[in-house]
């Protein structure tokens, strides 16, 4: 299974792998927001946690359909389904690879982009912490959505429609953790909820996603 993780990471950084696209998209979202809402630094500071979280979520969404669609096209998915490694494990590894190539860079870049939005100084740590805890859930939930739509020719839009409602709790707790951190209120509850969502999604969704892939392959 480690072989699968290594291959996916290798594919992502080779030409055409799409590594960095999510990051660039995140940057563009963050840059566009001040043009839309005005340059008032107080206003920007107030909405910064939400914008950064929504931006990270959209950047994550952008690359979801690549998780299984490419492997489905070239037949790798058929072969993985008949391989000795459990398909559930393969799904988890592919979600992990997706996180390493999108969620992790987003987490590292977010504080830097927070600067552009006048994020108050006390928010940087909470932003990084909440993204680090929450983005694995985004990758895992996204893999489930990608597994549902893997057989479809143009599944990208449907994938977004299916996944976005599932992202609501993660987004709420993530942005709330940062907002509370800035106000100096207790961040324990939202951060624990984020961790709980991530752990539960990692434990359970690979089974649902693998079931969906098996259905789509037949």
């Amino acid at each position: 299974m480690i072989a699968l993780l290594q291959r996916d990471l290798k594919l992502a950084i080779r030409a055409g792998g799409g590594f960095g696209l999510g990051l660039a998209f995140f940057l563009i979202v963050v840059v566009l927001v001040p043009f839309g809402v005005g340059s008032d630094s107080g206003l920007l500071a107030a909405i910064a946690p939400g914008i950064l979280w929504v931006g990270a979520l959209l950047a994550c969404l952008l690359s979801l359909d690549r998780i299984f669609a490419l492997d489905h096209e070239d037949g790798s998915l058929d072969l993985l389904a008949t391989a000795p490694i459990p398909l559930e494990g393969a799904v988890a590894m592919k979600a992990a690879a997706h996180w390493v190539t999108t969620g992790l860079p987003l987490t590292l870049a977010a504080p830097g982009l927070g600067l552009l939005l006048n994020l108050p100084a006390s928010g940087y740590g909470w932003l990084a912490a909440s993204l680090a805890l929450g983005t694995p859930a985004l990758s895992m939930i996204g893999s489930f959505g990608a597994a549902l739509t893997v057989g479809l020719k143009r599944g990208g839009l449907l994938l977004s429609l299916l996944v976005l409602p599932l992202y609501v709790p993660t987004l709420i707790f993530g942005a709330e953790a940062v907002a509370r951190g800035i106000d100096g209120r207790d961040t324990g509850t939202p951060l624990l909820m984020l961790a709980a969502i991530t752990l539960a999604a990692t434990a359970l969704l690979p089974f649902a996603a693998a079931a969906a892939i098996r259905i789509n392959l037949r």
């Binding site: 290798k10 594919l11 055409g16 792998g17 492997d71 070239d74 037949g75 790798s76 058929d78 072969l79």
Partner: peptide
């Protein structure tokens, strides 16, 4: 028909 090959590997 599909070989499961990755073009960049």
């Amino acid at each position: 028909h599909a070989d499961g090959l990755k073009a960049t590997l």
